[in-house]
Nucleic acid binder design. Structure first.
Lengths: 222, 222
DNA sequence: TTATGTTTTAAACACTTGTTTGATAGGTGT
DNA sequence: ACACCTATCAAACAAGTGTTTAAAACATAA
């Protein structure tokens, strides 16, 4: 049981530090000393720092995608509620994400940061790892979103899907900063649940928006 | 003129590399060798790596905020069009941003990527720098957004403002990746202007959305 | 017990990092 | 000519990085 304990303690500590300071800025020494394990333990149990990073996210994304798939199965096999609406989908995803990050809001923040890095940081081991591992669930989400928004042209739907993703990722990745500002400026402490509560109608309304004024790109010229 | 040339070449190169790989992952040696300047030039001209990062931001944000302020002055002094709508504001911002990145469309993508990193990646000094330097313009934008959306509660408006910011930053930061996917999946090559064209109605509709179903957070429990 | 395989440990490794140094020009003004 | 300030350069610096090593401790089973 000593091994399992060391591995878990490394993963737990790495998760927190990665979310706090980023990947490159978090050294193995910082992780191992805070986790009260020997420095060499990381390379012994995981092989390398890269592998540790992937293991941290695999521990989060594995169960999460499983739960997401299960929730999608449940919703789609239930004929009583017929076609899923955009709100249904968003709520479904939100439920799974929040449930998966239960107890540690930093987890959600870190997971979203990875998504951002995977998209932004063109090449690198993270993106490939993510892509090879979790694309089928991602495309399934896009597919049922398509069924929920038949009025959109495919290319429109593509962009709006990523607009939603952007709001979600950015908001969750910088959640702590924004919470601090909100508390300072409005004296209100919004939990992550509060924020998601505000986010869902914003996204749902966005995807169903009409098009802008008739002449395309007219805004860009005087 | 040698100094100005060296400084410019450092800034140009740093801008690209920071956007590509992040701050911590980009070494001064990588910058200086690619820029064909001596390693010590960075510390000589900027003082430190931190200062270089801030200088990269300042060179872009300085003119941009100036133009933004000027555009706001023009719009607000023009009594003929009265109160600005959300669309007006979004179009105004889009115009300034596109104009500022003129000549190098990748530049906007880079700066948004940097902004995203600055928000996400703790980096205490960067956030403080941005906050102390450009908050007045930022708050002015929030103020006229408030006037354009009187129906929203302040805290609602605060979050939706950042939801918009998230969509914008994420989309622009990952523009190249998304363009490639769109071209592969739909056979359509969308320019940055096309994307902004799609983004504006999404954002405008999002900020004006109603609230979600009556019981707050009802979605989070079964 | 002995033997075997696994886990932990301290130390060292090779390498990269940002920064500093002192010498060497380059230019400008007196 | 001289002095003065600025800029560039190769070299070195101390500190920190991920990784490896070989010995030690531990566990499990024969």
């Amino acid at each position: 049981m000593a091994q399992s304990d060391t591995v878990t303690r490394i993963l737990d500590t790495a998760e927190v530090l990665f979310a706090e300071k980023g990947f490159a800025e978090t050294s193995l020494r910082a992780i191992t000393t805070k986790a009260n394990v020997n420095l060499a333990a990381v390379n012994y149990h995981f092989g390398s720092k890269k592998a540790l990073i992937q293991a941290v996210f695999a521990r989060f994304l594995g169960p999460m995608t499983q739960n997401l798939e299960a929730a999608l199965d449940r919703s789609q096999s239930d004929v009583s509620n017929g076609q899923l609406t955009v709100e249904d989908i968003l709520i479904l995803v939100a439920r799974v994400m929040v449930a998966e990050s239960k107890g540690s809001p930093a987890r959600l923040s870190m997971m979203m940061r990875l998504a951002g890095l995977a998209y932004t940081q063109g090449q690198g081991h993270l993106r490939k790892f993510l892509q090879n591992q979790y694309t089928q669930t991602f495309y399934r989400l896009m597919k049922i979103t398509a069924e929920a928004t038949p009025e959109l042209k495919p290319i429109e739907r593509f962009w709006r899907f990523h607009f939603m993703l952007g709001s979600l990722v950015f908001t969750m990745a910088s959640l702590e900063s924004l919470q601090a500002i909100a508390e300072h400026d409005f004296g209100v402490r919004n939990s992550e649940l509060d924020v998601i509560d505000q986010l869902l109608p914003f996204l749902a309304s966005g995807v169903r928006a009409g098009s802008l004024g008739s002449p395309s790109k007219g805004w860009s010229l005087d």
